[in-house]
Amino acid sequence: MEELLVTARSNALIDPGLHIWTWEVAMYLFLGGMTAGIMVFAAAMTLLNKDEEAPLATTQLALLGPVVLSLGMTTLFLDLEHKLFVYRFYTAFMPLSPMSWGSWVLVFIYPVSLLQILSTLRNGYPRLAVYPDRSALGRRVLDWCESNRRSIAMAAIPFGVALGIYTGILLSAFSARPFWNTGILGPLFLVSGLSTAAALVALAARRHGERLMFTRIDLVLILVELALVALFLINLSTGSGVQIEALESIMGGPYTLLFWGLFIGAGLLVPLLLEVLELRGVSMKVVLLAPVLVLLGGYLLRQVMLDVGQESTWTQYPSQYNAELLDRLHR
């Protein structure tokens, strides 16, 4: 065994464990994933001609995309330490940096999402559509978007998927952080993003049928998410030494309750159970609890991943006095 004493190092945000990213980034990853889900569902419902059965998702949901994404980008901006230089994301494209890919994907998300909104504006928000309809140009734009509604929807899906998966790849690309260094984070974050968007529809839908449809979709997504979490755990527990060590944080370590109790329990299993009951026709006073918990779970996934991941490391400097070490000396 080895005991380390480090003199002269207590760098802010780095020591004793890395804690550079807090709720701002977790919130951004959560809202980014939700935006991805919003775009994908709005597009899919359009392609499946669900105007009647799922009016909210087909004609109104898309408007939330840029709103939610802008909120997320705001919290991301809050996290930057050198805020005045934020434009620097857009003076370069670094092909090996997922963060650079992400910043450029965000730029394309807005126009695609705007087209999605315009293509359903008259149906979804007749009161808003009045304004563009007043001018000849506005009418032409809306007409064009409506007649190309399906093509727009088809374009929105890959962009939505790219956005959702990037939030996970962003973290998994860090070979320096053993807890993140697994390719499963991409699909896991994507599925979680879809699930939170489905929960959002279930929460906001007025029609009983639409709510049931999205409850059913969400149920499947939660099951897939649970399977991906299982793969993630298998992946790390059969990984390298530093990965096994990183896993200890959630296997009896300080983040055990947050991961198992709150994320898995309250954020996935409880809503899963509630959704099953609802679909079985068990009448419940708290039907809205399930989607609210799914949203909470989606946020907690990002938070726990960020917290545990950034602390996981190759280099440990336990420079504090540790009484346990004394006991070992007597052995």
Binding site: I14, I20, E81, K83, F85, V86, R88, Q310, W314
Partner: peptide, 24 residues
């Protein structure tokens, strides 16, 4: 050119980088 996004801090397996306060 630095935005202070801190990606490089997380990317260093030796935790060798630091944020220069107060500039960021």
């Amino acid at each position: 050119k630095c935005t202070g996004c801190k990606a490089c801090i997380a990317a260093c397996p030796y935790d060798a980088r630091l944020v220069m306060h107060p500039d960021g």
